[in-house]
């Protein structure tokens, strides 16, 4: 049963890649746009650290690490679960109807059922940024890989949780994209910026601290408590997000989302 689901997931991913291959031109332009986009943003931090060499103990290599983790997660999400990013739009268009009549998990269909995936070029870009930062800081490669996985799981879960708000709010797609993007931005802010209630926020309702701040402690201070905290938080965040999605799905099934449609 699990084997069949896994095989189906692989088949979906293959279909996605095939669709991307038929749209080669669009794929390449989009990738170039995305990387330009990230480069412009990264240059901003170079400018900021040019004016102010150290902010709350963070220097340019900290930003590169945080940003590399984030960008890799973003790339992975776009590649292997693009549909989660467009969840609010899929809900609005009633696309979950078909998935609900099929035997495989709805979330799997949501994540992999839309084409337009980009991602591998962004993952490579993230990898390059991480390599540069890794060389600058001399962190363990194995740990860096593990942190990449954690950041990716946390970010994907956050996108799922906040995207699921689309079950309650119509036309949420635009807002959701804005929110995901801002998660990414907050996660790459120097940790010392956050204190008091803000610190509570980034560990609870908007747990972006687990995207970069905590991984950086694991990487740079070899802090095993931080690692333990990160691993359990990652699992918890993934579980809660899935719960929120399920809750939203039951609202979808109630039909009140759409009201009367004949």
């Amino acid at each position: 049963m699990v084997g069949n689901t896994l095989r189906y997931a692989v088949d979906m991913l293959k279909a996605n890649m095939k669709a991307a291959a038929t749209l080669r031109g669009a794929y390449i332009t989009r990738s170039i746009f995305n990387i330009t986009n990230h480069s412009i943003y990264l240059s901003l931090w170079v400018l900021i650290f040019d004016a102010i060499p150290s902010i709350g103990g963070w220097r340019v290599e900290h930003i590169l690490l945080a940003y590399g983790l984030g960008i890799f997660a973003w790339g992975f999400l776009s590649f292997a679960a693009f549909g989660i990013r467009t969840l609010p739009r899929q809900i609005d268009d009633g696309e979950l109807d078909t998935y609900l009549t099929q035997p495989k998990p709805v979330l799997l269909n949501v994540a992999l059922g839309t084409t337009q995936t980009v991602g591998p070029p962004e993952m490579i870009f993230g990898g390059v940024v991480l390599t540069i930062a890794g060389v600058m800081t001399g962190v363990s490669i194995l740990m860096l890989l593990l942190m990449t996985v954690c950041t990716t799981v946390v970010f994907t879960s956050l996108v799922l949780a906040y995207g699921s708000l689309g079950f309650w709010l119509k036309g949420f797609h635009g807002n959701a994209e804005e929110i995901y993007f801002n998660f990414f931005i907050i996660a790459t802010r120097p940790e010392a910026v956050f204190h008091g209630w803000m610190l509570v926020m980034i560990f609870t309702f908007m747990p972006v601290a687990f995207m970069a701040h905590v991984p950086l402690h694991v990487l740079l201070d070899n802090n095993m408590n931080a690692l333990l905290l990160l691993l359990s938080a990652t699992t918890l965040i993934a579980l809660i997000s899935y719960k929120i999605f399920k809750l939203g799905l039951s609202r979808y099934e109630s039909g009140n989302r759409f009201g009367v449609r004949g």
Partner: peptide, 16 residues
């Protein structure tokens, strides 16, 4: 508010 805290931090640190 995050921005405000960002600049307050830079102000406190007085590096520049």
């Amino acid at each position: 508010f995050v921005f405000v805290e960002f600049w307050r931090l830079i102000g406190r640190e007085e590096i520049v």
